[in-house]
Simulated scan of single mutants.
Amino acid sequence: METTGRRLRADAERSVRTILEAAERLLSENPGATMEQIAEAAGVARTTVHRRFASREALVETMATSAWQEISEAVDAARPHTAPPLIAMHQATANVLQIKSGWRFALGTLPPPGEEAARIYDEVMAKCDVVFTRALEAGILRPGTDLLWARQVYLALISEVVHGSPAAGPRSADDPDALAALVIDTLLYGLAPR
Rank of each mutant, 00 (worst) to 15 (best):
E21H: 12
G32E: 15
R9T: 12
S72C: 06
M63W: 00
F53Q: 03
R46N: 14
M35T: 14
T65M: 04
R9W: 05
S66H: 01
E24A: 06
L8P: 11
E70H: 10
G5E: 11
L26N: 09
T4D: 15
A106Q: 02
T18D: 14
P84K: 08
E13P: 04
E24M: 07
G108H: 00
S101V: 01
Q91T: 12
T18Q: 14
M35R: 07
R6F: 11
R7A: 15
S55P: 05
P85T: 06
A42Y: 04
I99E: 03
S72I: 01
R7Y: 09
A12P: 04
R56Y: 02
M89H: 09
L97R: 02
A78F: 11
D76A: 15
A92V: 10
G108K: 00
Q69H: 08
A45M: 10
V75W: 03
E21R: 13
W103M: 02
G32V: 09
R25S: 14
Q98G: 15
T47R: 07
V75Q: 04
R6Y: 09
S28A: 15
A106W: 00
P31Q: 07
F53N: 02
Q98Y: 03
S66C: 01
T4K: 14
L110D: 13
S15Q: 15
V44K: 09
I19K: 13
A39K: 02
G5A: 08
R46D: 10
P84V: 06
E57D: 03
L59H: 01
A10P: 10
V44Y: 11
Q69G: 09
L20S: 10
R79F: 12
E13T: 11
S101I: 01
Q37Y: 06
T47I: 12
E73Y: 06
A45D: 13
H90M: 08
A106E: 01
R14Y: 12
A77V: 08
A58I: 02
K100E: 10
R7M: 13
L86I: 09
P111Q: 09
A58Q: 05
S72W: 05
P84I: 04
N30M: 04
T4R: 15
L86P: 09
H90D: 11
I71C: 02
F53R: 01
R6W: 08
A67V: 10
R9N: 08
W68D: 03
A41P: 07
M63Y: 01
T109C: 04
